[in-house]
Amino acid sequence: MNTSKVNIKDLKLWYGESEALHGIDIEFSEKRVTALIGPSGCGKSTLLRCLNRMNDRIPGCRIEGQILLDGDDIYAPEVDVVQLRTHVGMVFQKPNPFPKSIYENVAYAPRIHGLAGSGSDMDELVETALRRASIWKEVKDKLHTPGTALSGGQQQRLCIARTIAVQPNVILMDEPCSALDPIATAKIEELIDELKREFTIIMVTHSMQQAARISDQTAFFYMGDLIEFGETGTIFTQPEKQQTEDYITGRFG
């Protein structure tokens, strides 16, 4: 079951002159939830953004090493970033639906990638995506109202629906619940639990309780190094490294 989906080999990353990641080796398993934890600036978000090459947009950012998705190097020169991003979707910290209708939000990516025409095919695709993001019941009667009019939690689930509409393999989540209240957070966590049946999910979170609640594996980063990586249950009860222990018990700095 635990086949490796994303394999990172000796990944180093620089922003200009400063090295932000110092040689990361990690394997993310297929159809599991991996949580990346660590204090701010430890490189976890940077690593996450390497996985769909969002860092390409940052001037002066360069990497060394390999990131293999199903065995293929995603930084190979002939790789089309646009194609990559249909395989590796991303959900952001702040819910950021487009200021368009709910329908348009979900239909946008399939349309620009030519996955469905605009007729009933698209209607079906939109409905499926919304259903899988467990938001269909709440929005089915107002598909043509603006997505920005939804509540924060609903917006975030809409963003997840938008992401899974193109059937990615991997979903990256950058602190998806940090702007949400506990109930909305619980709904997202429940959704993540559902989604891991089909998708490999890698999420950055600042809430250790959240990592403990929903992840199968946890990786602890500190100062651009991967300190410890293992089963979540083990990391949160008997971590091997002192730094991990200090961080998750709140003894840091």
């Binding site: 403990a212 949160f236 009860t237 971590p239 222990e245 998750i248 018990t249 709140g250």
Partner: peptide, 9 residues
Amino acid sequence: RQPAAGDLR
């Protein structure tokens, strides 16, 4: 405190 790791044990 929702203790973890050593504290939890």
